[in-house]
């Protein structure tokens, strides 16, 4: 079920295009990855969703309704550039920020206490931000983003500045929020976390959306006839048997099993490969190589830049 969508969104700054006819659709209770190189237009799109800037044309919808200023209370936004008031007690500014999102003071305190307990930072309540390390500040910032229980959460590089233990804690909390009903838009350059967390992604490059879909489906779409074969036998014989028909991209020789990475071309099928190998080697395993999101990202962006 669609929870959020952007339809034909255009935005031009002075003479640079930030977004050109961008459409995205985010399902309810899913994690949507918003990917793209630096300067692609991701932040502009996020700011349009947050009603910080207005699109030149096109619209954004929340639960089927056109979004308005009143909806911003339902959004939690963690920008890439973090910041809190330097000379203000942590508890006080968390309450203030929650109130700005439309919470009552009473509810804000109640919810904040739950989160502070959960992150075991209750002792920081009366400290100034200046006294905390960067990672600690990130925790506070995360809490201020989610405390008003927004239906739509936007995280821009949420894991930057966290150590692996805290990054993992945060990952769990993000998944929990989704399971509790939140819909999440997640922007990052860390493709590992995209594979781990995202259900859907959209890849934006130079103001255009170039790829969109389910993560597994996209990775499958970008597979490029590359296979990994483990075998017992002599690499030289294998190499000679394949020459002229199948390209060997890589090979590893090992005591237990050798491995080659090959690419089909000239319309050769898997069976052709196996037939060529049977006389010279014992095949142990045969697997098509699925590209990582990192590969997909690079390939898709390079292809789109070539156009």
């Amino acid at each position: 079920m669609e929870f959020f969508s952007a339809r034909n969104v255009n935005k031009v700054f002075a003479d640079t295009k930030a977004l050109t006819d961008v459409n995205i659709s985010v399902n309810k209770q899913s994690i949507f990855g918003l990917l793209g190189p630096n300067g692609a237009g991701k932040t502009t799109l996020i700011r349009i969703i947050n009603q910080i800037t207005a699109p030149d044309s096109g619209e954004v919808f929340l639960e089927g309704r056109k979004m308005s200023r009143a909806d911003i209370g339902q959004i939690g936004y963690l920008p890439e550039e973090r910041g809190l008031y330097k000379k203000m007690k942590i508890g006080d500014q968390a309450i203030y920020l929650a109130q700005l999102k439309g919470m009552s003071r009473h509810d804000a305190i109640k919810n904040l206490k739950v989160w502070f307990e959960k992150f075991e930072i209750m002792t920081w309540w009366n400290k100034n931000i200046e006294e905390l390390s960067k990672g600690m500040q990130q925790k506070v910032q995360f809490i201020t983003t989610v405390v008003h229980k927004p239906k739509l959460l936007i995280f821009d590089e949420p894991f930057s500045g966290f150590d692996p233990i805290n990054a993992n804690l945060l990952k769990q909390e993000i998944l929990n929020l989704r399971d509790e009903g939140a819909t999440i838009i997640f922007s990052t350059h860390n493709m590992g976390s995209v594979e781990e967390l995202c259900d859907h992604i959209a890849l934006i490059n130079k103001s255009h959306k170039i790829v969109e879909g389910q993560v597994d489906e996209i990775r499958a779409r970008y597979k490029s006839n590359v296979f990994e074969v483990k075998y017992r036998g002599d690499f030289d014989k294998v190499s000679r048997a394949l020459s002229g028909q199948i390209k060997v991209l890589d090979h590893i020789e090992d005591k237990r099993a050798n491995q080659i990475t090959v690419e089909h071309y000239n319309g050769k099928s898997n069976n052709d490969l196996i037939q060529a190998l049977i006389p010279v080697a014992e095949i142990l395993s045969f697997e098509e190589k699925i590209p990582s999101m990192n590969d997909v990202f690079i390939k898709a962006v390079q292809e789109s830049n070539r156009k």
């Binding site: 911003i72 920008p79 550039e81 910041g83 700005l100 999102k101």
Partner: peptide, 11 residues
């Protein structure tokens, strides 16, 4: 302090 982006996403 960069808090401004959070603030103007609220008001």
């Amino acid at each position: 302090s960069r808090i401004i982006e959070v603030i103007i996403s609220s008001v």
